[in-house]
Design a protein around this nucleic acid. Structure first.
Length: 557
RNA sequence: UGAGGAAUAGUUUAAUGGUAAAACAACGGACUCUGACUCCGUCGUUCCUGGUUCGAGUCCAGGUUCCUCAGCCA
């Protein structure tokens, strides 16, 4: 007897499981259908994860299909970018890369079938007239005067549309359904419009292009897709999806809808993202403050973290407004296990260890993964000398209660080195502290003393003469309000402090050959990654992926 | 005010007529050579009102709120 594992499933997986048991389909085949008109963002990641992971769990496959039915908006640049992002996220469509434009000929043949069946007609009404005839949410529409043309006339007109004899907007092919349907989508939806535009794949071959509704279900059917997962707003389109497939009498995939994900303090509307980029409010589609996949990647977010975020977040039948904290938790959680540690001082304060011999240097061997030394034994050498840098805010002249770091007369542990006691401070004429005078206990090397006395504080440090100077870019939420999309003008809601550049941070020398495919934990400060575009060995620039949780800093608030 | 969809902790998701659960957040504590990590604890009369039932988040009736649809966008 096997142990029953009761694993929580979302409603989509439950439906699929049930239908597979009933034998409705013999396999699970999904597809991810992006339109190549922009870059992928965190909202798409949820859909990608659903499409690929569900197929995989049920032993099926997931296709990548570019939904390229609108040549005016689509570009090859986006096709390449999207493929890159999906690969980086860790998903593989193998040899199943498709384009809706691959099916333009088949779609055209099927359109003729519908005309012959009396299920489609060419309409001469212009855009405004069609809108007027459509009616409103509460009033039925009325039939177009061209609705009852003969099949022969429809065939001839449609052929001439295809041949490019008519200008844009002069004719459309419409499905003949029901102008009084309470479902507005069913009021004779447009199947083809005339567009004299070059297509990124088919060039100038076509003068007519299919609409989403006419293309999508048929493309799914051609590819043998069994489950066509999409977002909630397509629920209204399902009757039409089904209608086309039924009229054509071809394989009929099941459309299933789930709620989109949005994250607070950011935006995912493609139009608004474009405005940020084009308006120069951010530094391109890969600006690390953006929720696009390329940006998150540049910032140091990992694919594993993103996948884990999707997994723990699940699927539901309503739109979700997620707290960015949940995403950040997934990032910290993954980085905590995979990031090598290093020391970097962001705001340097000089320390002279008075009783440490002038000119002496000791190289301490420190673990890269102190939290997992067994499985990750890598180490690096870090120099210690008489002149060091520590973090300015790790010293306080008048320390409050429960402050465990440096102060006059206080002893703390310098990570991986010695116990250090501050004896004196040096100020400049403005009263600003410029240097700390300290002593070290030679018996405390390795972080312990023979007398086993305890120190509460452990701080990081860098040897001044060996330190590498670098730049750090600290990112914060892009928008001040939780839901910038709801603001009258989301531009005015931009956080003026979303980027802080800090020059002259001091790094331990092992970071000299830091690479942009490794995210480092600067101990006690956060996770940092060299910027893949702008960091060079001579001028290192680190992006802060995310800060450490800091319960001490919170106390002050 | 047509049609469709959704309401469970601050947020997100479970519980499929049988003790309302988990993650994140917040707060309190323990531990710690990272004030990180880890661990422990605290935080809900399931949108409302009735009904069925020994028993209702779940079933029924009525109501409320929110979302989607009137592109020749997807």
């Amino acid at each position: 007897m096997m142990t029953e594992i009761t694993e929580t499933k979302d409603f989509i997986r439950n439906i699929i499981k049930e239908e597979m048991e009933n034998g409705r389909f013999s396999q699970v085949h999904t597809r991810f259908p992006p339109e190549p008109n922009g870059y992928l963002h965190i909202g798409h990641v949820t859909a990608i994860y659903a499409d690929f992971s569900i197929a995989e769990e049920f032993g099926g496959q997931c296709n990548l299909r570019f939904d390229d039915t609108n040549p005016i908006k689509e570009k090859t640049e986006y096709v390449d970018g999207i493929m890159d992002d999906i690969k980086w996220l860790g998903f593989d469509w193998e040899d199943r890369l498709y384009f809706t434009s691959d099916y333009f000929d088949q779609l055209y043949t099927w359109a003729i079938q519908l005309i012959n069946q009396g299920d489609a007609y060419v309409d001469d009404l212009d855009m405004d007239e069609i809108r007027d005839y459509r009616g409103t949410l509460t009033e039925p529409g009325k039939n177009s005067p061209y609705r009852d043309r003969s099949i022969t006339e429809n065939l001839e007109l449609f052929e001439r549309m295809k041949a490019g004899e008519f200008p844009n907007g002069s004719h459309v092919l419409r499905a003949k359904i029901d102008m009084a349907s309470p479902i507005i989508n069913m009021r004779d939806p447009v199947m083809y419009r005339i567009l004299h535009a070059d297509h990124h794949r088919t060039g100038d071959k076509w003068k007519i292009y299919p609409m989403y509704d006419w293309a999508h279900g048929q493309s799914d059917s051609i590819e043998g897709v069994t489950y066509s997962l999409c977002s909630l707003e397509y629920l209204n389109h399902r009757p039409l999806y089904d209608w086309f497939l039924d009229k054509l009498g071809i394989d009929h995939p099941q459309q299933l809808e789930f709620g989109r994900v949005s994250i607070n303090h950011t935006i995912t509307s493609k139009r608004k993202l474009r405005r940020l980029v084009e308006g120069g409010h951010v530094d391109g589609w890969d600006d690390p403050r953006l929720p696009t996949v390329i940006a998150m990647r540049r910032r140091g977010y990992t694919a594993a973290a993103l996948r884990d975020f999707c997994k723990t977040t699940g699927l539901s039948k309503s739109h979700r407004h997620m707290d960015v904290g949940m995403l950040e938790h997934a990032v910290r959680n993954d980085l905590n296990t995979v990031s090598p540690r290093a020391m970097a001082v962001m705001d340097p304060l000089r320390v002279v260890v008075k009783n440490y011999p002038e000119g002496q240097v000791e190289w301490f061997e420190l673990p890269d993964y102190p939290q997992d030394k067994k499985n990750r034994p890598a180490t690096r050498k870090v120099p210690f000398s008489r002149l060091l840098y520590v973090e300015r805010d790790d010293f306080m002249e008048e320390p409050p209660r429960k402050f465990f770091r440096l102060g006059i007369g206080r002893e703390v542990r310098f990570l991986g080195a010695y116990y250090i006691t501050c004896t004196d401070i040096v100020k400049d004429e403005d009263g600003k502290i410029v240097e700390l005078h300290c002593t070290y206990d030679p018996e405390s090397q390795g972080g312990r003393t023979p007398d086993k006395r305890k120190v509460r504080g452990t701080i990081h440090w860098v040897s001044a003469h060996h330190a590498i100077t670098a730049t750090a870019r600290l990112y914060d939420r892009l928008f001040l309000s939780e839901n910038p999309e709801a603001e009258d003008d989301f531009i005015t809601d931009l956080n003026p402090d979303s980027l802080r550049v800090i020059e002259n941070i001091q790094l331990e020398p092992s970071l000299a050959n830091a690479s942009s495919d490794t995210v480092y934990q600067f101990m006690r400060k956060g996770y940092f990654v060299p910027d893949e575009k702008e960091s060079t060995p001579d001028a290192l620039i680190f992006n802060r992926t995310i800060s450490m949780r800091d319960t001490w800093a919170k106390r002050g608030k």
